[in-house]
């Protein structure tokens, strides 16, 4: 409780500090360059000066934080990738040579590619199907809410949930994992699912698909509702059946949204490490880049150079999406 109390005090101080900064800086600006009264020429000059300064008062903390926490680290990571484990001795391309010569990298790169193909596709696909169907039934909102729910669960929490489903009991004991129980029920042999090479990756992906389908569903559902009813009614009059309407009229009209959902999930997939760490600890051929990077950062005191190289690989994979996003945002700004 003492901790909570001190956290509360720190929290209030922090928030008050933020507020005091904004209030204080604006107050000072108004005091130094008064604009509410005085000779017209002075007011005009003050106003110009104040209007040039004020945006930076508003932006200051955000720009500082963004620079310190995101911009500078990206630059520094690039630098560190040329340095040794402690980040002090220059080693040239040694880290890159090591990376491209290591089997573990190829394993995690291959797995990452599998994740990148399977998870966004499956989540978007299920999301689209569910969004379409739930729009037509009276209890659709309840269904959506339940399918959306895993979104609120942490990756570690989800890992526990699914590890329980994949649980394996030896010998003739009753299976308490749902999957093995089903296999036994249908007359099969129970399996240790998480140790089957290659396939175990898919059992991990299921978790992320389970989490992300709700996200895809919510966004696609809104997009579907944005489709003008007239186009669908026209298709009905033209004699199209339900599936034709779906594939030929509805889906083409929401391609843009599907792309957004897809890329958002793709970025998430690149960053996921919790699931692998919690489920298999990267054993049995389930390593992925983000987890590999994490391991190199801490294992045996940490190797900052190698960790930075792996982080750079993830960054390079993200860049095309980043460029696309910025272009889209710019086009939108000009449209305003």
């Amino acid at each position: 409780m003492g901790q909570l109390a001190s956290a509360l005090v720190t929290m209030i101080l922090g928030v008050m500090g933020c507020a005091a900064y904004f209030y204080g800086s604006n107050f000072l600006l108004d005091k130094i360059f008064p604009t509410k009264s005085g000779a017209a020429a002075v007011v005009a000059r003050n106003l110009r000066v104040a209007n040039n300064i004020r945006p930076w008062l508003f932006l200051g903390p955000a720009v500082l934080l963004l620079t310190f926490y995101l911009f500078y680290p990206v630059i520094d990571s690039i630098r560190l990738s040329f340095y040794g484990r402690s980040g002090e001795e220059f080693v040239g391309l040694a880290n890159y040579k090591w990376l491209f010569g290591s089997d573990e990298f190829y394993e995690s790169f291959r797995n990452n590619m599998l994740w990148l193909i399977v998870v966004p596709t499956a989540a978007t696909f299920f999301g689209l199907i569910i969004a379409t169907m739930t729009d037509r039934i009276w209890w659709g909102n309840i269904a959506k809410s339940l399918i959306f729910m895993p979104m609120a669960i942490s990756f570690v929490g989800a890992s526990v949930i699914w590890k329980f489903i994949y649980d394996f009991r030896t010998g003739g004991e009753d299976q308490i994992g749902l999957l093995n129980a089903l296999v036994v029920f249908f007359g099969g042999e129970p399996q240790t699912w998480l140790t089957i090479p290659i396939w175990n990756n898919f059992f991990l992906m299921v978790i992320l698909i389970w989490i992300q389908t709700g996200f895809a569903m919510v966004i696609l559902s809104a997009a579907l509702r944005g489709i003008p009813d007239e186009t669908i009614e026209a298709a009905v009059l033209d004699g199209a059946n339900g599936f034709q309407i779906f594939y030929k009229i509805m889906v083409p009209q929401i391609w843009g949204t599907i792309a957004v959902v897809w890329t958002t999930i793709t970025i998430l997939v690149l960053k996921v490490f919790d699931i692998v760490l919690a489920m298999t600890n990267a054993q049995w051929g389930t390593q992925v880049l983000a987890n590999q990077m994490f391991s190199w950062m801490f294992n045996g005191g940490g190797d900052f150079g190698r960790g930075a190289v792996i982080a750079l690989v993830i960054m390079v994979l993200v860049i095309p999406i980043m460029v696309w996003n910025i272009r889209r945002a710019n086009a939108e700004m000009e449209g305003r």
Partner: peptide, 11 residues
């Protein structure tokens, strides 16, 4: 009769 080009709206 006062030039207000640079005077803020409120004034």
């Amino acid at each position: 009769g006062v030039v207000v080009n640079d005077v803020p709206p409120a004034l």
